[in-house]
């Protein structure tokens, strides 16, 4: 690989911040969860790149764990979405403002 690690990190950063923008700006909860998946994957990319750079397998093992956790989190997030929006008229995150003070 002739590409420098920092290129991968920059790429990971771009993907990450796209995900951030998605979470903050989209009102459909499903899209927001997908954006969160994007962020997690961006982190994974960075980890794999560093694992390759330091030639340390621990980075890749970490990615393995992240994937697992992301899967669990996606499952539960989707379960929550289902529970909350099962009979809702609008599938909109702004409609569920019960924490309003």
């Amino acid at each position: 690989m002739q590409v420098d690690v920092s290129s991968y990190i920059a790429l990971s950063a771009v993907m990450f911040f796209i995900g951030v923008a998605g979470v903050v700006l989209r009102r459909n909860p499903l899209i927001a969860l997908m954006a969160i998946e994007l962020m997690l994957n961006a982190a994974n990319l960075a980890l794999v790149a560093f694992a390759r750079a330091w030639v340390n397998i621990a980075g890749q093992v970490f990615v393995f764990l992240v994937v697992t956790v992301a899967a669990a989190e996606a499952a539960i997030g989707l379960a929550i979405v289902v529970a909350v929006f099962r009979r809702a008229k609008n599938v909109d995150v702004d409609e569920v403002a019960r924490l309003r003070g």
Binding site: V20, V24, V93, V96, A97, R98, L99, R100, G101
Partner: peptide, 17 residues
Amino acid sequence: FRRLQTGLVRGYALTIV
């Protein structure tokens, strides 16, 4: 400060960002 407690998740997410 009550006006910050919108209950809207996106707002809170923005704060984190």
